[in-house]
Design a protein around this nucleic acid. Structure first.
Lengths: 205, 205
DNA sequence: CGAGTGACCAATGTGTAATATAGTCACAAA
DNA sequence: TTTGTGACTATATTACACATTGGTCACTCG
């Protein structure tokens, strides 16, 4: 597996360093208050008391800083989803919870940190690394649930797991992709319910 | 049912009139060549040999002209889908064909008339009348197929028809909405197949 | 050597004055 | 009445000079 923690398009210079953390902290603050575009690299530098050039000892580009902040948001979403899934027992319920919580966690980010959500939109639209990792994590979680459901006999076993998993991911994708989710806000209440029902009917043994 | 053919937000003055047709023809030509934004109402007027003011005897706004042209595109898509559906016998095959052809017809518009596709995006994003009509038509077609499948015993009958229909529409929606479809181009080959499979598994009696 | 920076450049963004456009209306000709 | 228009306004768009910004590099200081 690829180690995205030492990826040269995302990081540069010392991986563990106090200043790196300061940059991330300052960026989180500034990006969420003023937005990615209206925050300059100089702003970040000033707020931690260094020169702009020093930022570039730790990050190869402004976008790389953005990706770090975005990665934190997406990781938070994955954590919330995993937590919600862990709260119930049956695989079918896990699936419902997963779908519902992905939407709710994303929507929370949208409501409470609009500016960071906008970064997530750029990330998904321009296919930043961090988005690919996020998608993989969601897909893994989905596959785990499916595997468990197959083991317990709650889900059918004829259809190949990959096919099952892929199709269900495709159903969920419009609600995972931040840009698409925006165009589905009218459905965030009913969609996870109706679509979970449909998915579960298709998974009946 | 509401008569959108005499809707004051879309039309004005004589409904059946040669000049109206000329305007629509000129607009189709200009919009598809130069795009909606870069075509001025004066351009349309000039190309049919009248003054700009005369256009407004037939349409209440430039957008209304755009909606007319867009309505033609969407009607074409619905026709293509209905034709494709009529070509097969079994309800299950009709569903597959429907899903596949919606995507292909939209993609054809995207490939061959990019500028008109862009109008369709505006229409869907800003919820123009014409888009609502289009969605209704697709939903009706879907419901017809489901009803037939229930009658023939090909589809299960426990789940309420409305629920079934709604859920399947939600699965298809990302591929019907032109703006969302753009972000799913990577999946236009596999999605209709995988998702039709999933839907049909959920419809098994 | 490692931490840190000012000066610099190409590219991108911004403010603004000038232009173009959507839409209306009173009115004319047929 | 029906067909058709030029002149007008308020809003949107362009164009262009100017300022900012992302990013680099040679350099200093300890």
């Amino acid at each position: 597996m690829y180690d995205e923690n030492n990826n040269p398009t995302l990081k540069r210079g010392p991986i563990e360093h106090e200043v790196r953390d300061q940059i991330v902290a300052a960026a989180t603050e500034h990006f969420s208050r003023y937005g990615y575009d209206k925050t300059t690299v100089s702003d970040l530098a000033k707020s931690i008391g260094f020169s702009k050039a020093y930022i570039y000892k730790f990050f190869p580009s402004k976008q790389a800083v953005g990706e770090s902040i975005c990665a934190n948001c997406l990781t938070k979403i994955v954590d919330d989803v995993e937590k919600a899934v862990a709260e119930v027992e049956l695989p079918a319920e896990k699936l419902r919870q997963m779908f519902k919580e992905i939407i709710q966690a994303s929507f929370r980010l949208y409501s409470q940190d609009r500016k960071l959500y906008e970064i997530a939109i750029s990330a998904a639209t321009d296919r930043w690394q961090t988005t690919l990792v996020f998608e993989k994590q969601i897909q893994s979680l989905l596959q785990e649930i499916l595997q468990e459901g197959r083991k317990t006999g709650d889900f059918e076993r004829k259809t190949p797991l990959d096919e099952m998993s892929k199709a269900i991911y495709l159903v969920m994708r419009p609600y995972i992709h931040p840009l698409m989710l925006q165009h589905s806000f009218d459905y965030i209440e009913e969609a996870p319910i109706q679509l979970s029902n449909l998915i579960l009917r298709s998974l009946a043994p």
